[in-house]
Design a protein around this nucleic acid. Structure first.
Lengths: 213, 213
DNA sequence: CTTGCACCGTACCGAACGTTACGGTACACC
DNA sequence: GGTGTACCGTAACGTTCGGTACGGTGCAAG
């Protein structure tokens, strides 16, 4: 039942990555635009090569999603110097990166594809995107939250629940609306504003010695 | 560019609704299981009839989604007797219904379908689901929030933003995880707990005279 | 009884697309 | 020069599926 999530290093040739990049382009243009013929033409390679490298269409799709999903820039936060100010700005930066990623064209495309795939018998892509997206985000921020709690700056019972609330405050209904095709044109300014507001609210709920900021 | 959203009354024969119900069954079993032949066989009708009634596959899909999406039970809340207690329980009930709907098999199926559709050139289904789901929810709760503000029980600048935060607190990452195929098995108990927690947090952020409850 | 209508069941058509096969080319290695 | 390898481009095959056509049935109206 466990999905293969290895392939840490660049297991792909430069040429192969060009193919994956072409596939990704097609995917962004419309998930139904990715036909083997179209990929071959776009990447200037033969279909025979495609099948030799990736097995079948599903293999190409999986490789593409895995390749792209793995390079999602999950923000790093260091737990040194954990005073109230650095904790807050760390969380705020995390919120900004999270929201900025989710509203990106690539995230929307990949999540659309994975959601659609989860609605079929095949499954697989959903797991990959979930693992490299939402779950990885949790794994990254939770240590920070725990450190914050240990430093008596935050107060919560379960870090998983705390992260879920944080996620909800940051993302709100933005992701689902984007996935459903709503045009929201979120600029850097709005993302910044929302990240700050979400952080503010998160600390209002879980902060220990709130001093209005 | 505006999508047809009329068809208020039951524009469908009983027999036609049986067909739509069959289509819905197929959809739940897997979005790729809905072929015209399968629908015809499941509903014990001829493909010719299908095309006469719904035009083409897209028409059948649209009719199915519209028919089902329109019957999403959006909770009603009355704005009479607006003391702190009734406001709170109204919001809480709304949260419970919202979460209960979103985790349902039908909501997941429809949203998966609409998200997948939004990733293609066609578009259309995303608009319908968005309009009957998230946006309708907002239209229903916002008057209550406004009434709460007018009664000086709530304090916020923009009811739209307030609803978005409420949505985020209630839904968190639940919907996207379900859409991506994560098995979460949320029971009535968990839904109840989360709805209460979300309401608690919403009032902590926007309530005017919070008294711990 | 006849006619017309709405519908069922099924066979059929054409297009799209995944997949395979084959001929041709560039290049490294001997 | 000869040979093998990796690749490109394209033709071809098989299946699936949307869409159409046609014969057959039950039934209500006249």
């Amino acid at each position: 039942m466990s999905v293969a999530l290895d392939h840490r290093e660049e297991a792909f040739t430069l040429r192969q990555q060009q193919v994956l990049s072409a596939a990704l382009e097609l995917l962004v243009e419309g998930s139904d635009a990715l036909t083997m013929t179209a990929v071959a033409r776009r990447a200037s390679c033969s279909k025979e090569t495609l099948y030799k490298w990736f097995g079948d269409r599903d293999g190409l799709l999986t490789a593409t999603v895995q390749w792209q999903a793995a390079k999602v820039r999950v923000p790093h936060v260091d737990r040194h110097r954990l005073d109230a100010q650095t904790l807050r700005s760390s969380v705020e930066a995390f919120a900004r990166d999270l929201l900025g990623t989710l509203v990106g064209e690539m995230s929307v495309t990949l999540n659309r594809l994975a959601v659609a795939d989860a609605g079929m018998q095949k499954r697989g892509l959903g797991r990959i995107v979930l693992e490299n997206g939402r779950l990885e985000m949790g794994r990254r921020l939770k240590p920070v939250l725990d450190a914050g709690r240990h430093a008596r700056l935050l107060d919560f019972a379960d870090s998983e629940t705390a992260f879920q609330v944080f996620f909800g405050l940051v993302v709100r209904d933005t992701q689902i609306r984007l996935l459903l095709g709503d045009e929201m044109h979120l600029g850097a300014a709005e993302i910044d504003r929302d990240a700050i507001a979400a952080t503010q609210q998160f600390f209002a709920l879980y902060g220990r010695e709130e001093k209005s900021r």
